[in-house]
């Protein structure tokens, strides 16, 4: 006679929500924004950090839709791939999108554009941003800046109060203790909020991979007309000033950070999948902002721009 062995019934597996420290913290922050402010907005650039923010905002409120709009400050120097991606994401997620153009600020306010070899609209976009904040009476702007990006950003609070002129007063910041966020402000002030402050570039890529998020094609390796200047690879496009002796040639490149064509350099890369990007970042010895031409101007370039109201 054979023995009958009963299968234990305790094998039904319980599904446990484990704590992903960085994700839980970011979701908590985004929910505080929705609760503490009247008119928040998520500043969307089409880059990997703001794409990550959109997913975190979806997770924060699901099954409710994201309770605030996205806003894109369009410099007119964007990569066309980024704009295509932006419109697709908006269509798929059903969020509201506001677009404001630096071109309009230049015309309406009679601003002078930078000219010459290093001309970019990076500083001018501050005007457009501050005007839009005033136009819509936004009291909180959520952004994808991370503290590991740049040394002035390493000092930034999660809720960073800006005065009526959008300025950052780095010497008199509110202390942030434990998990408590103080979003009390006066009329006319606004708060810049950075939910992924504590993420590193690698954390962002790992998250994009885990969540299987779509990203603009320029993050992956592709062939592009480029030229070399100051040891960096520039995109050869009509909005980018080029000297006659700067020779254009095709290179296999990708972008690690997506700003304007006029201030973002490419890196040589064969990475065609998210896995390959993650492996590439792991062994990289150059920082992400090493490819940001706008940061290289002076040692305090970022800090100076933030005091002027830059993001």
């Amino acid at each position: 006679m054979s023995e009958v062995i009963e299968k234990p019934e305790t094998l039904t597996r319980t599904k446990v929500l484990k704590n992903n420290v960085l994700e839980s913290e970011a979701i908590y922050i985004i929910r505080e924004v929705a609760a503490q402010f009247e008119k928040p907005v998520l500043l969307f650039s089409g880059g990997k950090d703001s794409i990550t923010l959109v997913r975190l905002a979806q997770k924060a409120f699901y099954p409710e839709k994201i309770p605030f709009p996205l806003m894109h400050i369009d410099t007119g120097h964007n990569f066309p791939e980024t704009i295509l991606f932006r419109d697709k994401l908006v269509a798929e997620t059903g969020v509201d999108l506001i677009v404001r153009y630096v071109e309009d600020s230049i015309k309406n306010k009679n601003l002078t554009e930078e000219t010459g070899k290093y001309a970019s609209r990076n500083r001018l976009q501050t005007h457009t941003l501050l005007d839009a904040i005033e136009e819509f009476k936004f009291d909180a702007c959520i952004g994808g800046a991370r503290r590991d990006e740049e040394k002035a950003r390493a000092k930034e609070r999660i809720f960073s109060v800006r005065n009526d002129f959008g300025q950052w007063d780095e010497k008199n910041q509110r202390p942030e203790l434990f998990n408590m966020l103080n979003g009390k402000i006066d009329l006319g002030q606004n708060v810049r909020v950075f939910p992924i402050s504590n993420w590193t570039e690698l954390d962002v890529w790992q998250y994009i991979k885990d969540e299987n998020l779509e990203i603009p094609s320029i993050y992956f390796s592709h062939e592009r007309d480029t030229f070399l200047r100051d040891g960096l690879i520039w995109s050869a496009d009509e909005v980018v000033f080029r000297e006659e002796n700067e020779v254009v040639s095709k290179r296999r490149v990708r972008f690690r950070t997506v700003g304007d064509m006029s201030c973002t350099a490419a890196v040589l890369s064969d990475a065609q999948t998210l896995d390959e990007i993650v492996s590439e970042i792991r062994v990289s010895t150059v920082s992400e902002r090493g490819a940001r031409i706008d940061d290289k101007r002076t040692e305090a370039a970022m800090e100076t721009r933030k005091q002027e109201g830059y993001f």
């Binding site: 319980t14 599904k15 704590n19 839980s24 913290e25």
Partner: peptide
């Protein structure tokens, strides 16, 4: 079924 402490 279960949420661990720390999770949102």
């Amino acid at each position: 079924e279960t949420a661990n402490p720390g999770s949102s």
